[in-house]
Structures are given as structure tokens and as C-alpha cells.
Design a protein around this nucleic acid. Sequence first.
RNA 1: GCGGGUGUAGCUUAGUGGUAAAGCACCAGCCUUCCAAGCUGGCUAUGAGGGUUCGAUUCCCUUCACCCGCUCCA
Length: 507
Amino acid sequence: MQTAPQTTDQDQPAVDMKDIVALCKRRGFIFGASDIYGGINGFWDYGPLGTELKNNLRDYWWKSMVTTPPIGPDGHPVQIVGLDSAIIQNPQVWVASGHVGGFSDPMVDCRETKKRYRADHLVILIPSDDTPWIATIEDDEDFLKARLKKVGRGKSLNDFTSKNLTEIDLAEYPKILAPDAKEKGTLTEPKEFNLLFETGIGASEADKTTAYLRGETAQGIFINFKNVVDSSRVKIPFGIAQVGKAFRNEVNPRNFIFRSREFEQMEMEWFCHPDEAQKWFSFWKDERKKFWESIGLTSDNILMRDHDADELVFYSQGTCDIEYKYPFTSPDFGELEGIANRGNYDLTQHQEHSKTKLEYLDPERNNEKYIPHVIEPAAGLTRGVLALLCEAYTPDPNRPSGVYLNFDPKMAPKKAAILPLTAKDGQPEIAEKLYLELREEFAVDLDIKQNIGKRYARQDEIGTPYCFTIDQQTSEDGMVTSRERNTMAQERVPLDKVADFLREKLK
RNA sequence: GCGGGUGUAGCUUAGUGGUAAAGCACCAGCCUUCCAAGCUGGCUAUGAGGGUUCGAUUCCCUUCACCCGCUCCA
């Protein structure tokens, strides 16, 4: 994620994240978890409307992946099946994936400057005499030169041997002059960060064995690759999709639900022949962008960003982030989804660690045996919810609520509200009848109390696209007033055509 | 994890070492009826824990949460 101070575009008033968080709490989208106990950092609870919104996004993703997957380059629909794997797996899974023991990055702090560095990013220049060892930041030539000029005592680069900090014994640390420090010996011992949540299996303390809550849903897919191939008549290329919770001990949860310790992912692993990986990588990049645009994220706020070579993890053959311009990153963008060409790294790792053959025998390629390559579109469901909320939040001084949520009707937690103009003259009865009819097909609200203005305002704030108002005339002509959220425009609709009306609008 | 800031009702604010106040919102009733009208009534708060004190929302300590910046985000 990139960060930058929040700025105000000329044509676009900056939306304050505070206001969005406040509305989410006030109207029941998202609450701080364990609220009444003073909260708990990095966790959030989804209220009645937040749950609806999250479910809508989740269901739409599932539909777009599993129920009605896209048309492939050959003009036929691609094949994707669903999965729901356990949150706790055999701990070996996380060893194989590299989450445990593998490449967690040790960090060192500087006691003097309070700065923190990745241990493997620090290069130490070791002189032949007993002058201080000079720590510099890897790959930063300018910094290195400037640093050498300042504290190098006239030596040139040739007078030093250089080593990575990770190769240096802790006993030598007192000799090291940290990159921004004046005194030597200020670097702390490297600190390990393990992002996985540990838990214990076994009811008795004595027999407890350590296990982990999953850090991503993807590994559950990889370890079921063979099961799915053997049971589902899928043929390469095909995908396995999964939605579910994931857990990471983030160093510093921030920015509302953007970085939390418990979050939800929507991941699909696309298995294909190595020769076709690049083709499918491009295909999924396009498809995933279309997905987010189809639920209302405007192109101005969406960015496709290909990772630079030096940004890629070692096994990745290409990664592209779909980024969204959140209010707290604006004018920069923050990650929403990552599409990665992972090669055959994951299946190879699991084949080695599990001693189970994960090769695919491809009858369409002369029974060629190979470990499939994987394209992974991995989206944050909860980050998607956040993007939808940010995108929808629309201040409007010209309406009583002062703000409305401009959700795409497909995503809106409530599709319509049924509002009798008054609580008498048989209007509530007509309203309830309409409500009972519509609720079979749509998430709708029936609200009878208080004056009509307040009720419109409330529906604006929760982003309900349509209100249907029953008035005195309804019992005479069988028509209700439809009121559209964004324009506040009204039109008369026959009672028995309201469902058709809604169905049409929700297409 | 570091530095700075903030915690009084759902929100915005008041106030005090001695009964915690108001507006808006919310709920109920009446009235009104197409965009938060009016009247009456009601609910709801000193983030948590400890200390000093006869008594702490106020003073002190700790902690938790949130915000900003840094760091980090395999």
C-alpha cells in the first residue's frame, strides 16, 4: 500500500474516513469488535446491514466465479468449482507454504533513531581496521555514497568488505553504526515476526499440539487439488474457488477494516498448463477488473498496477494488484485484489512436503504429466466491502440526511423500503401486503412510523435505491409512488407491477 | 513496535473534588402527511482497572481503544 497525506481534489470534496466509520456504526454496518469491553485492536463486527452488504458481495463473486463463470478465450465458459476447506489444517501445510519458519522477515530497531529496518535489507561495510562498521540500506547507491562520505573517514568503497546483516554474528553488533545513527551499537537483536495465529489442538493442556489459523484460504485449495481432480471430472484448465475467513497477526492494524487481523478472502486458484499460464494471467486480470467495475467502482478510483520485478516474491512470475483509491490512501491507491502468476510453486511445495504426487496427467496432451501452473486472483472480501462503502458515500447538503450511500442496487443491503404515508386509513395494511409479496424475492424494509421525510432520510443513509410510498390515492387507483434514491425523483407505479419494476432495476 | 494526540449519551458539546447539563438523534403517544415539522413523555454517558481522598468524571498511576505520523504488511 502506498500512503500519502490526504488531499482535496478540486472537483471532488475529500471524504473523511471518520464520517464513513461513524455512519457505519450509527446505521449498523460495522462495529468495533468487543465494543462493550473496550474493543480489541484489529477486529471488527459486521452489523445487520454490513452483513447483508458483505453477503451480497460474496454471493455476487461466487456467482461470477462458480455459478456463471466467464466465457474463456475459446468462446466457451471456463470451468470453476467451489470449495470450503477447514480453517485449521495440519501444521505442515504452513511449513510447506512458507508461512512458518520460511521467509518471515526479521526486523531490527535502532535504539537511537527509533527507526526500524528489515534485517535482510541492511548491508554492512566492514573495514580492515577497528573503525566502526557502517550499515547502509541495500540497493540505495546515493545513500551509500553519502553515508560513506560522512562517516567513512576518507575510505572508499574498496576499503571495505560488505556483508548482509543476516550473516553477521550478534556479538559483532556493538561495532555497527546504524544507517541513520550517530553512535555505534544501537541496533537491536533481529526480531522475528510470525504473522500466523497459533492455536492448540487437544482439550488437555498436556496433549496440546500447536496448530495455526489459516493465513490465507489459498492453501486449503492447493491441498485439495488432488481430491477435486479425482472427484469432480474437472479437466485442466480449471479453477477452484473459496470464500472464507483468514487470520494474520498484523504488526499494526490500521485504517478501519482495511488491515485487520481477522478478515475475509475470496480466492480462486486457476490451474493450467505451464505454456498457457501467461495467457490466463492476462485473461484473469481483465476479468477481475470488469468484476469490480460491474458493481459500481468507477474507473477513476480503480487502478491496475503490475509489480516491478524487484517487488515480486521469488517464485512469482508476475503479479498485478487491483488497487482502489480509498480516502485514507488518496491520492494514492491501496490494494483490493492481487492477481498472481504463481508458477507451480505451491503444488510443488506440497508435493515435496506431503510426499503425495500432485502431477496432472493430461490426456489432451498425449498423457503429458506435469505439475500445473497457477494463476491466483485473490480478493479481499472485507476490503471489497470497504471499497463499496467508500465509493457509495456521497455527501449531499441538499437533502435532509446530508449524505446518501450510492450503492449499485445489486450490492445495496436493502433493495427497497415500503412506506405508508400515514399510519392509518388502511395504508399500513396495503403496505404490509406489498412487503410480504416483495420479501419473497428481495431484501426489503417495511417502515410505518414517523413522518415520511425522516424515513426517506434513513433509507438514503443506508443506501436503499428505491422507496415505495402508499398514500390515500393508492386505495383508489392501485398505484404507489416510487422514489429513486440518487435523484429523489418520483413516479407512480401500479401495485401489482412493483416486483417487475424492482426486478428490472436490479438487472 | 516508536512518537504525538484523544476518550463525558448514538452524535455535537457543557460542567464540577460533593445529585452530571443541553441540543440533535433514537423510542412511545398525539397531531400532521411526499423529503429529518410540532407537542408530550421516555431511554441512554464520564473507556477499563487501581491509587490518593470522608467522597474522584475531575488529581496520580496503569491499561485498553481510537486518530495522526513513522515503521511494517511473508
